[in-house]
Every structure is written in structure tokens, then in C-alpha cells.
């Protein structure tokens, strides 16, 4: 059982002009095997939330726990897929995918078997001995996803994993991630600034406001997704459904409304 729990999480960053409040009292419970997307404008602290679950950053106040245990540092039970792939350039595709297994002390023969299973699963066959710079962005991100998935982590953390890909590749990767998640359900925290991506992928979309980052609203997509069986359909058909458009519009309005409210709040202050 590995849910993620944020309780009263506040994060301040020390800057040149004093402290900046990046995240303000966030409470969020992610259930075991739930796919949650956090969506919000840049600077809303969504990546920082993910980094705190990964153990790469720590809250100024409040607690972050995974599987009921407070997060103390990074670990392979919470593998991260980064936006910029972060593959080791001096290792081949196979060596990159097998890196975590090697850290875990898995014997070479068994490692080879597992790695090749994921090479096949992620459509990387024929590239297993290539170096990352010889692959396209989409291929590199497949390697990164394989590197994390092969560890069978309780929790998969994804920080705008498709943000650096072109639109066509992005759509293919989104479909593949849905299939991977169905085959191998696990807790996923997915960070994105794309509303469509969040609605298409997640059971629940958490909408955050601009700095200081707060949770504005949490929208449940999972029930609709299952009822309409989105997973069996192509992404463009799903995006054409009334239910999808409804969710998308609602989230857009939340993001817009919030920005306008913030702008309105600032106007009189500027005049004064």
C-alpha cells in the first residue's frame, strides 16, 4: 500500500529579497494505485510538490509521507521521470534501463532479462545498444520511463515528462502511458501544465493557483473515464467527447478565473 500524503505542506525559498512563499498549506491525499495529475501555471509549485515526494526537496512546514512513512531522501521506491530525460550519456540504452536494478544488486543474467522485457515493451528493440544522444527525444523519454518502470516502484513520479517532446510524439507517448498504467497499475503523481494531458491521463486532476501555490480544486475524472471506457479509444476521439470538453473547459475557467481575480486584486494596490 503506497499512497502519497501531503499534510499542511508549506515551502519557502530563501531569495535575495527575503523569503518567497512558493507553496502555501497544501493538503493532498493520493490513494494507492491512483493516477493524480497536478496542473497549474508555471511557478505554482507543482514541480516542488513532486520533488518533495521524491525526497529531493523538503517542506518548510508540514509533512510529506509515502506509504505511511515520512520522506527522508530519494529512493528507488519513488522513481522519477524527468522532463529533460536525465539519461546518463555515457551509458547505452540497456545500461541506462538496468541502472536501478544494478544499484539494487540484481544479478547480471536476471537484469538482462528484465531490461530486455522493457526494451520490447517500450518499443526500443534494435536500439538497446545505442547511446542516448543517438536517439530522438521521444525515444529518450521511452528509455527514461523504462528505467523507472523496470524497478516496479510503488510510486512513479513524473515531472512534465512529455513537455520537451513535439506534439505528435507527445500524443503517442500519452497513449502508451495509459496502456502501461492499465497493465501495471501503480500510484502515479504526474506534473503538467497541459490541461488536456491532465484530463486524458489522470483519475483526479488537482488544479493549483499561481504563487503562492495553493490547491484550488480537485476534479474527479476516473468515474467518467471508466464509465465511457476512454482507454479503449484513440486519444483524438476521447478529446472530442462532450465529457472531456466539459472537464477541459472547467479547468481552463478555474485557471483563467484565478488569474483574473489575482490581476483585479493587484490593480487597486498598484494605484495606491
Amino acid at each position: 500500500m503506497s499512497g502519497i500524503s501531503f499534510k499542511g505542506v508549506t515551502k519557502r525559498f530563501g531569495g535575495r529579497d527575503g523569503e518567497v512563499l512558493a507553496i502555501d498549506r497544501v493538503d493532498l491525499e493520493i490513494a494507492d494505485k491512483e493516477f493524480v495529475a497536478i496542473c497549474g501555471p508555471s511557478g505554482c509549485g507543482k514541480t516542488t510538490l513532486m520533488r518533495m515526494a521524491a525526497g529531493l526537496d523538503f517542506p518548510s512546514e508540514g509533512t510529506v509521507a509515502v506509504g505511511g512513512k515520512a520522506v527522508r531522501g530519494p529512493g528507488p521506491d519513488r522513481a522519477v521521470v524527468f522532463q529533460q530525460f536525465a539519461l546518463l550519456p555515457w551509458k547505452t540504452v540497456k545500461e541506462n534501463i538496468g541502472f536501478g536494478l544494478k544499484c539494487r544488486g540484481v544479478p547480471a543474467a536476471e537484469r538482462e532479462r528484465e531490461v530486455m522485457r522493457y526494451v520490447e515493451l517500450m518499443g526500443l528493440t534494435g536500439h538497446e545498444n545505442a547511446y542516448p544522444h543517438q536517439l530522438s527525444g521521444g525515444m529518450q523519454q521511452r528509455v527514461a520511463i523504462a528505467r523507472s518502470s523496470v524497478l516496479q516502484p510503488d510510486v512513479l513520479l513524473m515531472d512534465e515528462p512529455f513537455g520537451a517532446l513535439d506534439a505528435q510524439t507527445r500524443v503517442v507517448m500519452q497513449e502508451e502511458l495509459i496502456h502501461l498504467a492499465r497493465r501495471n497499475p501503480r500510484t502515479v503523481l504526474f506534473i503538467t501544465h497541459s490541461v488536456e494531458e491532465a484530463v486524458y491521463l489522470a483519475d483526479r486532476v488537482v488544479v493549483m493557483s499561481r504563487r503562492p501555490g495553493r490547491i484550488q480544486e480537485t476534479i474527479d475524472i476516473g468515474a467518467t473515464r471508466r464509465a465511457e471506457n476512454w482507454e479503449a479509444q484513440a486519444i483524438e476521439d476521447v478529446m472530442d467527447r462532450d465529457s472531456f470538453i466539459h472537464f477541459r473547459t472547467r479547468i481552463w475557467k478555474l485557471l483563467r478565473h484565478r488569474d483574473e481575480a489575482a490581476a483585479a486584486a493587484q490593480r487597486p494596490a498598484r494605484r495606491a
Binding site: 529531493l56 531522501g73 530519494p74 528507488p76 519513488r78 522519477v80 524527468f82 536525465a86 544499484c103 528505467r147
Partner: peptide
Amino acid sequence: EAAQTHGA
């Protein structure tokens, strides 16, 4: 960070 989150 990638190495650390994968168990190094």
C-alpha cells in the same frame, strides 16, 4: 538526482 531516485 536521476541516479539517486533510482537507488544509487
